[in-house]
């Protein structure tokens, strides 16, 4: 599974890896939502350090999880975005929804 998740109940950190497209995003969504839906998490950190490719399916993945964490009045942080991934995120204006840390 190209995703590793750490959670202490309040903070859920999802370490994504590999390629994010329409094919792979489904399993990533299900894995993250298993920790978010019905829980009390107020901070979701999505780490893209090991993501090698992303298309607009990744935007859908981020926006969907943003809605989930907002439901708990929480926040979304994005970290480890390569120039390519940041460029895709900018098209959707994700920097207005989440704190994005490049690198």
């Amino acid at each position: 599974m190209p995703i590793r998740i750490e959670s202490d109940g309040q903070t859920v950190t999802a370490y994504l890896s590999g390629e994010i497209d329409h094919h792979s995003a489904v399993a990533m969504r299900q894995a993250i939502d298993a920790h978010l839906v019905g829980g009390n998490a107020t901070l979701l950190i999505m780490d893209f350090t090991d993501v090698t490719f992303m298309d607009s399916s990744g935007i859908g993945l981020v926006m969907g999880r943003y809605r989930q964490i907002k439901y708990n009045d929480g926040e979304l942080h994005i970290q480890g975005t390569s120039p390519h991934i940041y460029k895709v995120m900018r098209i959707a204006g994700l920097e207005r929804l989440a704190v994005i840390e490049k690198g």
């Binding site: 995003a25 607009s56 399916s57 935007i59 969907g64 895709v88 959707a92």
Partner: peptide
């Protein structure tokens, strides 16, 4: 549906 951002053509264009 919800998980699609509706940005496919916007990405192709840019």
């Amino acid at each position: 549906g919800e998980e699609r951002a509706g940005l496919g053509f916007a990405v192709m264009e840019s």
